[in-house]
Amino acid sequence: HERALMVNRLQKLTRMLRVHPDPKWKQEQQELIKRLK
């Protein structure tokens, strides 16, 4: 369940980064990718 939330968050971040590349979001995205591996 928590994994699904993280995947959701990651997808949302990816969409937001396409619109507005924010370093903070980029960092969070990298963190999520690490944790999901």
Rank of each mutant, 00 (worst) to 15 (best):
L10P: 00
P21H: 12
H20D: 11
H20K: 14
V19L: 12
V19K: 14
V7T: 06
N8Y: 12
Q29A: 12
R3H: 10
T14A: 10
L17P: 01
V7R: 12
E2A: 07
L5F: 08
L5V: 12
Q30H: 05
W25Q: 05
H20E: 03
L32K: 00
L5D: 07
E31R: 08
R3A: 04
Q30R: 12
L17I: 11
K12A: 15
P23V: 04
T14S: 10
L32Q: 00
R18W: 05
K26F: 09
I33P: 00
L13T: 01
A4P: 03
Q27P: 01
Q30W: 13
Q27T: 11
R18H: 05
H1Q: 11
P21M: 08
K34P: 00
L17W: 01
L5R: 13
D22A: 04
V19D: 06
N8T: 14
Q27V: 07
R15H: 11
Q11E: 11
L13Y: 00
P21W: 15
Q30S: 06
T14L: 09
R35L: 15
E31F: 07
K26S: 06
R15T: 10
M16T: 15
R18M: 11
K24A: 10
E31K: 07
L13P: 00
I33W: 08
N8S: 14
A4H: 12
K24H: 05
Q11S: 14
I33H: 02
E31T: 09
K24S: 09
L5K: 10
M6P: 01
L5Q: 15
K26P: 00
A4Y: 11
K24M: 10
L36W: 02
L10F: 02
Q30G: 04
R3T: 10
K24R: 12
M16H: 03
Q27A: 11
D22N: 15
T14W: 09
L10G: 00
E31G: 04
V7K: 04
K37M: 14
M6H: 02
R35W: 12
E28D: 01
K12W: 15
E2W: 12
K37E: 07
Q30F: 07
Q11R: 15
K26R: 09
E2V: 11
K37P: 02
P21L: 05
E28F: 04
W25N: 03
E2K: 07
I33E: 04
V7L: 10
Q29E: 06
R18T: 05
K26I: 09
D22P: 00
A4E: 12
L5T: 11
T14F: 08
W25L: 10
H1M: 14
L36F: 01
L17Y: 04
A4D: 08
R15V: 10
V7W: 15
Q29N: 02
P23D: 04
K37G: 10
L5P: 03
K34A: 12
L17G: 01
W25H: 07
I33G: 02
D22K: 09
W25D: 03
V19N: 13
D22Y: 10
R3W: 14
R9I: 06
K34R: 14
R18L: 13
A4I: 13
R15G: 06
E31V: 05
R35P: 00
R3L: 14
T14E: 13
K37I: 09
Q30P: 03
K24D: 07
P23I: 05
Q29P: 00
N8G: 08
P23H: 04
M6R: 02
Q27F: 13
L10S: 00
H20A: 05
D22I: 05
L32G: 00
V19M: 11
Q30M: 13
L5W: 15
E28C: 09
R35S: 02
E28I: 09
L32P: 00
L10R: 00
H20Q: 07
Q11F: 11
E2M: 09
V19R: 13
